[in-house]
């Protein structure tokens, strides 16, 4: 049958759901081994974080899309968590190969890392369902017969950053590694993440209060203390 925007969206959703094991609500054995190899086991903090953010996400999704959609928000979150675990495992495998270490205690106990990774996974899920597609980005379905209408509301990026209380600059850090770690992401989703990346780089990271200003200041102060090379004669 000919490819229509709706069919394309349905295929993307099917692919996303198919790629994520239904048993993936818990960390896989491999991932659990990475956690156990840490100096400080991050498991309990991670589960607690997921519990809290799951409640916040479902509530905010319901507020944005419609009161009957809290359940839908919970379903999106569950898919997001599966993707979060899948990508985290791929990232750690690649880091193990690159650095020849198995103890990622510092990274895995970094709350910002987890929140960024989860936010990216949720953004991918919502974009797949057409709920976070930019107006120029093609299809924008997602409502269907559920009585929820995300097209009428604004769950577009950077909505997710506000929900999980994450700085755009920290979200930016995870995008490239996320795309590298999941080669099954569709072309449309990669394009969507690239648009998010550009929005951060061009606008959001420069808003008042951004951590970027403090980092630039530190970089400048550090740089000024360095020895300046004398010009060649």
């Amino acid at each position: 049958p000919p490819q229509t925007p709706i069919r394309a969206a349905m295929n993307s959703i099917q692919q996303l759901r198919g790629d994520l094991p239904s048993s993936g609500d818990q960390p896989s054995t491999n991932l659990a081994t990475y956690f156990k190899n840490c100096t400080v086991d991050p498991t309990q903090d991670m589960l607690k974080r997921l519990e809290t953010l799951g409640q916040v996400f479902s509530q905010r999704f319901g507020q944005a899309v419609g009161p009957r959609c809290v359940v839908l928000g919970r379903q999106r979150f569950t898919l997001g968590v599966r993707l979060y675990y899948k990508v985290m495992e791929a990232m750690l495998k690649s880091e193990e190969k690159r650095l020849s270490v198995q103890n990622f205690s510092k990274l895995l106990n970094d709350s910002t890392f987890h929140t960024s990774l989860l936010a990216c996974a949720l953004e991918v899920v919502m974009a797949t369902y057409g709920e976070s597609s930019f107006k120029t980005g093609g299809y924008n379905c997602g409502g269907g017969s559920s009585g929820c209408d995300p097209a009428e509301t604004n769950v577009c990026f950077p909505w997710i950053l506000d929900v999980v209380n994450l700085a755009a600059f920290d979200f930016y850090k995870v995008i490239e590694s996320f795309i590298k770690a999941d080669p099954t992401l569709s072309k449309d989703i990669v394009k969507h993440l690239e648009t998010c990346e550009n929005l951060i780089m061009e606008r959001i990271a420069w808003r008042t209060g951004s951590v970027l200003f403090e980092l630039l200041k530190q970089e400048h102060e550090g740089g000024a203390a360095e020895q300046i090379e004398t010009p060649a004669s």
Partner: peptide
């Protein structure tokens, strides 16, 4: 299969980006 431009060097992984190396 997509046009994303990967800008990170091989020595830059997620650990470095979160200052955890």
């Amino acid at each position: 299969s997509h046009d994303y431009h990967f800008g990170l060097e091989d020595h830059e992984g997620i650990s470095e980006l979160f200052d955890c190396d």
